[in-house]
Design a protein around this nucleic acid. Structure first.
Ligand code: MN
Ligand code: MN
Ligand code: MN
Ligand code: MN
Lengths: 216, 216
DNA sequence: TTGTATTTTTAGACAAGTCTAAAAAAATAA
DNA sequence: TTATTTTTTTAGACTTGTCTAAAAATACAA
């Protein structure tokens, strides 16, 4: 089917596409920690396989077929992350790198059984939606804490930054998925945000507020 | 650590070593469905890494280090097979090829947790022992049905042939791991064996009797 | 609009792993 | 022992995915 390298490129292009429309060579190179010249080569190959649209100097976008492949890789990634946390009891900051390896095991029957074994979860440990086998998933209406009005109440439902250090910070503050919070105040000096959670007040920086997502 | 190709060579050499002492280039080529010239190249590389002993034209054997790597791959393979059968409810003839892919995920912590999750199983779905993380396992005293005296009683505990067709045949005859049988008669004409299992008589060919292992 | 900086592509090379064809060594037979 | 067959190694080539250095295209600024 597709090689490991091809899969990693498709996933990177998908991820970058969410922000911008067409994705540039340099963006992909940065995302995969590789060189622009390598990206040009690979993007050509993906275009041959009709997985991306590419005209030179214009950047790339995924075709329908390419998007389907990318969503399948993401499905596998998130299902394995769920497995690692729920069944093997890893912490949410430990699973990404492992899932990065496991996502390339692509036997459909295996993934479907894994999905069933865990009861068809809809979100991974970081709150991200798990696409079904056709690549469908609910787009969630999550907002960064930094973007809502004072006195808004919500439920912590996702993160924008998936780094281990950010996740560990949230864990230490008990700011984990499912917690109910109320935005109490925004300090005008540095845009720090004061939250109330379980009747205690917690102050978080602007940066943290930007990367913490809530459902209203 | 070691590449996927290196791991597959080490596993093949380990397997072939169980039968013979030194393993020949052609044997490895046959086992991996590759060419002798490719084997020579790879074996050189493994010798550089001190994973095999090699002098040209003399065949190879694993070093202590190489054997440890091989046993670790086998551990991973068998643990995943156990997982696929016990947790995802695949049949014993369906799991080998999947495990062949999964065995290369090598994060020690993951494998140890998987092991714990399943309650530290000692045998895989085909009756083969699962080495611990140091490569230790009990050598089992299993005998082919064809090698024991008439009137011997035993428990089906393993197979020599791991092919899907053989496993499916056994499944259809209900000759599965754990079943108690008694060897009743050996037909002198064709060496077919008549067994008694759960008060019924079953006849199996010489070939099947050779590949079905029992514990006495 | 013309010149400079940035981005992207091309050209050429390299490592890993494989192959075919030919040479060398070892095993077997006459 | 000499000749023939088989096994193993060498030589050279190819593919995938990567890199550096240089050229070409595009974007931006004066
Ligand atoms: Mn992840
Ligand atoms: Mn995730
Ligand atoms: Mn197996
Ligand atoms: Mn097995």
């Amino acid at each position: 089917m597709n090689t490991l390298a091809e899969e990693n490129y498709l996933k990177a292009i998908y991820k970058l596409s969410l922000a911008a429309g067409n994705v540039s060579t340099n963006q992909i190179a940065a995302e995969l920690a590789t060189k622009a010249s390598s990206v040009t080569d690979m993007v050509r190959k993906l275009a041959e396989k009709a997985l991306v649209n590419y005209t030179r100097y214009q950047g790339v976008s995924l075709t329908k077929a390419g998007e389907k492949v990318a969503l399948n890789i993401i499905r596998r990634h998130r299902l394995w992350e769920y497995f690692l946390v729920e069944k093997l009891h890893f912490k949410w900051d430990e699973v990404h790198d492992m899932a990065e390896e496991m996502e390339h095991i692509s036997l459909t029957e295996l993934i479907d059984r894994l999905d069933a074994f865990m009861g068809h979860p809809t979100r991974d440990p970081h709150g991200d939606p798990i696409p079904d086998c056709d690549g469908n998933f609910k787009v969630s209406e999550l907002k960064p804490v930094s973007s809502v009005e004072v006195n808004t109440a919500g439920v912590i439902s996702g993160v924008r930054d998936h780094s281990a250090s950010f996740l560990q910070y949230l864990e230490r503050q008990q700011l984990t998925i499912g917690k109910h919070i109320i935005i109490k105040e925004v300090i005008s000096y540095d845009n720090a945000v004061i939250l109330e959670m379980e009747n205690t007040q917690i102050q978080i920086s602007r940066d943290v507020a930007n990367n913490l997502l809530i459902a209203l």
